[in-house]
Design a protein around this nucleic acid. Structure first.
Ligand SMILES: [Zn+2]
Ligand SMILES: [Zn+2]
Ligand SMILES: [Zn+2]
Ligand SMILES: [Zn+2]
Lengths: 171, 171
DNA sequence: GGGTCTCTGTTACAAGATAACTTTTCGATT
DNA sequence: AATCGAAAAGTTATCTTGTAACAGAGACCC
């Protein structure tokens, strides 16, 4: 098996659910964002980078107002649009994702351009794992073709219990 | 092909996108709800039935406040909890579904107990088609097993253009 | 015909999101 | 370096979506 480690220096899939060197995880994600912005001529401004850092503090999803509160703690008293604009930028360019089920946001853990991943959301510890969507996307595309539907974007989210929390609750 | 017609007297899949006898569609859905409630000892009260009827007026998704407005037009001045409670009941028992991407609700078009279907949402005419989720659910289950995740509920929604609106925009 | 439980009515508010306008910052151009 | 235009940040105000909490009415069971 031993697939090579391509996701920003983190694990091979459900990094969010596995114990790992998260400090490294964060650094890698920030550096990746910096690099990709530089390459694409995007401006990773201080607010935007700070919001990404806040999201990267854990693999749990944060609401826009959670992010805003964290910004507020740091001096200024930012208003909602500040957080929403930064989040919109991060989502638009694939550095973060919006979790529809939670009205919340997570940092991306799968270095790539914009993509429509599959998310697994732990209802206990709130961690969100991002998985490649290839098989699911194929099925959806097949169904869509059958009925003549032209798919733009997809939302695929599963809510349940992560390995860690299963172990705990089974005790 | 000619699969037999099992969905509440409507078509074989994307009924929402196909021209059809919608009056019959509505009647069938209401009668099905009455029958299933009677069988299961559930109370399809006037508010609940009225809300289901409102959702059934079209295959587009309605926000809770849209539903509330429609109720308000009819005399009394109901408050949000009225609509939310009725919608919660309908969703809990599979008579309607919540579309996370839209924060809105649609009547179910697939006679069955609670289920986690796949939705295709037309960004133009706002119609929402409900499709069986078997293949997608299998993929998700396989992925979940791989990483040790225990799936509870799933959200699978695709936004795009329905056959009808594709034809129009291609003109 | 009393007790319990579910549903409804009502108030009040929390949480999520955006419209619209002003000021600042940045980067390119002269 | 001064100027200009575009993009981002700051600000105000408002809108949409969703709940908590409690009081009253009605159904249902004995
Ligand atoms: Zn990590
Ligand atoms: Zn967990
Ligand atoms: Zn119909
Ligand atoms: Zn359409």
């Amino acid at each position: 098996m031993a697939r090579s480690d391509t996701s920003k220096g983190c694990g091979e899939g459900a990094i969010a659910f596995a114990p790992h060197d998260h400090a490294r995880c964060r650094r890698a994600a920030i550096e990746d964002a910096r690099a990709r912005c530089a390459a694409a001529g995007l401006r990773l401004t201080p607010v935007r980078e700070r919001v990404l850092e806040i999201l990267l503090e854990s693999h749990a999803a944060l609401g826009a107002y959670d992010v805003l509160r964290r910004l507020t703690d740091e001096g200024a008293v930012p208003q909602p649009p500040i957080a929403y604009r930064a989040l919109d930028f991060l989502v638009a360019h694939g550095f973060a994702h919006r979790i529809e089920k939670l009205n919340a946001y997570v940092a991306c853990t799968a270095s790539a351009e914009t993509h429509d991943p599959v998310f697994m959301i732990c209802r206990d510890c709130k961690a969100v794992a991002e998985l490649p969507s290839a098989p699911v996307a194929r099925d959806l595309e097949r169904e869509a073709e059958r009925i003549g539907f032209d798919i733009g974007r997809t939302v695929v989210e599963a809510e349940g219990l992560c390995p860690g929390c299963r172990a705990e609750s089974a005790s």
